[in-house]
Simulated scan of single mutants.
Amino acid sequence: MSVAGVPAETADTAVLLLSELATNAVLHTPSGDVGGRFAVRAFFLPGRLRVEVRDEGGAPFQVPSTAPEPAPDAEHGRGLLLVATLAYRWGRFTSRCGAGTFFELLWDTGTAAPAVPMPEEVRP
């Protein structure tokens, strides 16, 4: 079964990655302060899902070229590693509404997924 045309396995991955980005927004930006908030947008295209988590900013965030690898016994620090491993593409973006982090997932629909340029992306 699919949700909005997204296969169940891909939807499960999207929920996991969304929870990681939302957690980062709450832990590492003013979105986690009293009265803070974050916004989520999802874009559905044939064979492609893009999810954005816009936060309330904070210290400038530099997208690493690779996700950091935590120590084997570390209790935190695996969120971006999960995103980098499971997403087709991920990074920071800026728009007139603010900044945040995005990821994209792809799946086979039997046809080529259209390229979707997102001009507001911040390229690492």
Results as ranks from 00 to 15, higher is better:
86 L>S: 06
82 L>N: 12
50 R>D: 02
31 S>N: 06
22 A>Y: 04
84 A>H: 13
84 A>Q: 07
23 T>E: 14
37 R>M: 08
34 V>W: 04
39 A>V: 07
38 F>N: 02
113 A>I: 03
100 G>L: 00
77 G>Y: 06
43 F>R: 14
119 P>H: 07
82 L>D: 05
82 L>F: 05
40 V>C: 08
101 T>F: 03
106 L>N: 04
73 D>H: 14
43 F>G: 08
8 A>R: 15
72 P>H: 12
115 A>K: 07
78 R>L: 04
53 V>L: 06
34 V>E: 15
114 P>V: 13
56 E>Q: 15
68 P>Y: 08
5 G>D: 11
9 E>M: 11
105 L>A: 08
60 P>G: 01
55 D>I: 06
2 S>M: 08
62 Q>I: 11
72 P>S: 13
119 P>N: 12
117 P>Q: 02
79 G>K: 00
22 A>T: 11
116 V>F: 11
60 P>A: 14
99 A>S: 15
102 F>H: 05
20 E>F: 00
8 A>C: 09
18 L>N: 07
13 T>W: 09
23 T>G: 07
91 G>R: 04
102 F>V: 03
46 P>A: 08
52 E>G: 00
98 G>D: 06
74 A>T: 13
53 V>H: 01
114 P>Q: 14
121 E>G: 00
35 G>C: 11
33 D>P: 03
70 P>A: 15
106 L>S: 06
27 L>C: 01
4 A>Q: 15
70 P>G: 11
118 M>C: 10
115 A>Y: 05
105 L>K: 01
52 E>S: 02
7 P>Y: 09
42 A>F: 06
82 L>R: 05
94 T>N: 08
90 W>V: 00
104 E>D: 15
57 G>H: 09
50 R>I: 04
122 V>R: 13
54 R>I: 00
21 L>C: 00
49 L>N: 02
65 S>F: 05
54 R>A: 05
24 N>E: 05
92 R>A: 08
89 R>T: 03
50 R>W: 00
103 F>V: 06
26 V>R: 13
114 P>T: 13
7 P>L: 05
59 A>W: 05
71 A>S: 11
11 A>L: 10
111 T>V: 15
89 R>S: 12
104 E>C: 08
59 A>T: 14
53 V>S: 01
89 R>G: 02
6 V>G: 10
10 T>S: 14
35 G>R: 09
80 L>M: 13
112 A>W: 01
89 R>H: 10
107 W>V: 06
91 G>K: 05
59 A>N: 11
63 V>S: 08
13 T>D: 13
100 G>E: 00
39 A>P: 00
123 R>M: 09
98 G>H: 01
4 A>R: 14
72 P>Y: 09
120 E>Y: 03
77 G>P: 02
43 F>W: 10
40 V>S: 07
109 T>Q: 09
118 M>F: 04
